[in-house]
């Protein structure tokens, strides 16, 4: 495992920890899209089915279990926590996730490495992850809730994507025969969406001094 991959995983992990800490400390999930969080839960569950029949490393297993449990933990807070659930922007978070899920299902059935249940679900998770942030993007543009912690979350997620691209470049040049074009193309789309996100933050920050960029 190279340093870019490890740093990417760590920023991904930190982004989730930051979000959980924000929710726990402020007892508020204002500005957080439940739909995006539910899409991430679907992504993790459909991708990490191999937990049951493939062992790669302790690190790999621990991270997979962390991603699955933490995503359900966030969903639990937003749906069921007595105080936190009341701060959820229900009326604003109305993105139709079917518009993302259904095309991803069809694309995964059509474009995959192998037509098997596990492989198609894995491919579906790759496609879905690349667009899962969109409800969050729409929600932030509607509510203008760009508090520092939410923007830290988004910034860390963006850093995770950028580091994974560096990881793929590194592996491409150092590992003979290393190639995974489904992951590459989806990851590039995902990073492009984050760039759009980042642009939005810069614009918000310029418009309003109160909104600060993550340091």
């Amino acid at each position: 495992m190279n340093i870019f991959r490890f740093a990417g995983d760590m920023t991904h992990l930190c982004s989730i920890v930051v979000l959980l800490l924000k929710i726990e400390a402020t007892k508020s999930c204002a500005g957080v899209s439940l739909r995006t969080q539910e899409l991430y839960a679907v992504v993790f569950v459909s991708r990490y089915l191999d937990l049951f029949f493939t062992f790669i490393s302790v690190y790999n297993t621990v991270m997979k279990v962390f991603f699955i449990t933490s995503s359900f933990c966030i969903i639990w807070y937003m749906r069921h926590h007595r105080i936190v659930s009341q701060t959820y922007d229900r009326e604003q978070d109305t993105f139709r996730v079917a518009f993302l899920v259904v095309p991803c299902i069809f694309l995964a059935l059509l474009v995959n490495h192998e037509f098997s249940m596990v492989e198609v679900l894995w491919t579906f998770s790759i496609y879905l992850e690349s667009v899962a942030i969109l409800p969050q993007l729409i929600l932030l543009q509607r509510t203008f809730n760009v508090d520092t912690l939410t923007s830290n979350y988004v910034f860390l997620l963006g850093a995770y994507r950028a580091l994974y691209i560096l990881n793929w470049l590194y592996r491409y040049f150092t590992e003979p025969g290393y190639s995974q074009w489904i992951v590459w193309s989806s990851g590039t789309l995902q990073t492009a969406i984050y760039c759009d996100f980042f642009y939005y933050y810069v614009v918000s920050w310029r418009k309003n001094e109160r909104l600060s960029l993550p340091s």
Binding site: T54, N60, H113, F115
Partner: peptide, 10 residues
């Protein structure tokens, strides 16, 4: 479909 890549990334 081509060769299935190893799934060692998260």
């Amino acid at each position: 479909p081509d060769q299935t890549p190893p799934k060692d990334e998260l």
